[in-house]
Simulated scan of single mutants.
Amino acid sequence: MTNTITEQLTAAGRAIEHDSFSIIDAEAGPHAYTAEQWPLVRRMIHANADFEFNGLTVFHPEAMRAGLAAVLQGGTPVVADVEMICVGLSAPRLGHFGMSTHHYINDADVIEQAQAEGTTRAVQAMRKAHRAGRLDGAIVGIGNAPTALIEVIRLIREAGARPALVVGMPVGFVSAAESKDLLMAVEDVPWVAIRGRKGGSTLVVAAIHALLGLAEVEQRKAGR
């Protein structure tokens, strides 16, 4: 059966998307990803037509299981480093699972604290999310700010923060690759990451949309 919530709303749109996925499957050829992981990688390739993500994308062993469980339990928050991720995620798809998005980077107190401490807004935004109890059990999406990802990792290691899943894909030239290397060394919290400098909010959105689509498949199998 075709998904009804996490697919394109028109037959023409669905046909284009499905044709795109078929082309990606054909051109990508053999790969090392599991049947559960490939739909996420494929959707990331679809988001920007870059086949290098077939290989650059790395998964914690529990990433897909944890991500699907977080979606299916309902009401799981998505905490993002920037507003772009929150805007990019489909409200109807999130709403189907009772999920909400949160970002704090533009909050006045976050800006004030960053200026006072000589840190970035992204660092203070993650600290605020942790103080508010938003990180625990959340899907955390980092697509823009390496400092946000580094801070989330610190909060995991030093403050006991326990997100359900970290989608760590900051793009850039200063600390982007290094922040993802740090994430890939984390064992206690599941993650999905991209090696090197590539990344971006679009890819975080694509990864989360892939999780939502897989979760709807599981719902339909269960007859829910």
Rank of each mutant, 00 (worst) to 15 (best):
T2F: 07
T6F: 02
E7A: 15
E7N: 05
Q8E: 14
L9F: 10
G13E: 02
R14C: 06
D19T: 10
S22P: 01
I23E: 07
D25N: 13
Y33R: 14
T34V: 12
A35M: 08
V41Y: 05
M44A: 06
H46V: 03
A47D: 03
A49I: 08
A49Y: 00
D50K: 06
F51A: 08
N54Y: 01
L56A: 09
V58F: 01
F59Y: 14
E62Y: 02
A63I: 06
A63D: 08
R65V: 12
G67I: 02
G67K: 08
L68P: 06
A70C: 11
A70D: 04
G74L: 06
P77N: 07
M84K: 11
I85A: 08
C86M: 02
G88A: 02
G88K: 05
G88P: 00
L89Q: 06
S90E: 08
L94K: 01
G95A: 15
H96T: 11
S100V: 15
T101A: 10
T101W: 03
T101S: 07
H103L: 06
H103P: 00
Y104Q: 13
I105F: 10
D107W: 10
V110I: 12
I111V: 15
I111R: 14
Q115R: 15
A116I: 03
G118E: 10
T119Q: 03
T120Y: 11
T120M: 11
R121G: 03
A122E: 11
A122T: 04
A122L: 12
A122G: 12
M126V: 10
A129P: 06
A129D: 04
H130R: 12
R131F: 00
L135T: 04
L135W: 06
D136Y: 00
D136W: 05
G141A: 14
G141H: 06
I142F: 00
A145L: 05
P146C: 14
L149N: 04
V152P: 04
I153K: 05
R154F: 09
L155S: 05
R157W: 00
A161N: 10
A161Y: 05
A161H: 00
R162N: 09
V166F: 03
G168S: 09
V171K: 02
V174A: 06
E178Y: 11
S179R: 07
D181H: 13
L183D: 07
A185K: 12
V186Q: 03
E187S: 10
D188E: 15
V192W: 09
G196C: 11
G196Y: 05
G199I: 12
S201D: 07
H209P: 01
G213C: 02
L214Y: 00
E218V: 01
K221A: 14
K221W: 05
A222E: 10
G223P: 00
